[in-house]
Amino acid sequence: MSYRVDGFENAISFDDGVSLLMNGTSNTTTPRLLDAITPEDDEQAVVITTNTGAETIVNELERRGAVREQIGIIDCTNTDSEIEGVPVRNLKSPGDLTGISLEFAKLFHDKHSDDPIRARIGFASVSTALMYTELRTIFRFLHVFTARIRSGNMFGVFSLDPTMHDEKAHNTIRAVFDCEAKVNESEVKVTGTGFQQQGVL
């Protein structure tokens, strides 16, 4: 099985368990990240947000065709948001990585499904988390997180703004991911492994 995506230049679907890093300014990556994680009928979406309020995320996902039952949010923007019909977990800081992992586990625990859950996970953005923690810590966290996404056959999309970090930090983070996308106003181009291209079956 795989996760279909729309609106990418060269990728039409991502393999189960794959994690993608989206590089670009947050203005351009956030909408594209939401495109990529909008769930199909039998799927769930969990968004970990450090820069956009939970309400905006829910509205944007609904606009893209998702229904509230499919959405779960971990809001690290330090605002107490409550949205009817959507589990929203509020955290004080994007640097609370244990909190993120706990809430992530609880969101799936609460869904309590016997069938394996098909889920798309969005993390927007790694850049904000990196302002609150060391590069070494984030690197380890991302490895463990992407390993969890792999073991659960989920699809992970993480955004990062390269202009906010030195080149070495950015290049180090890139090493965690199966594939990455360069995002600008007009296109999203994916390189790496774990995705299918148009016309290649």
């Binding site: 990585l97 810590t137 380890r140 463990v144 997180f145």
Partner: peptide, 9 residues
């Protein structure tokens, strides 16, 4: 997953 992240922190 949770235990491993906690160990990192």
């Amino acid at each position: 997953f949770v235990a491993m992240v906690r160990d990192i922190e």
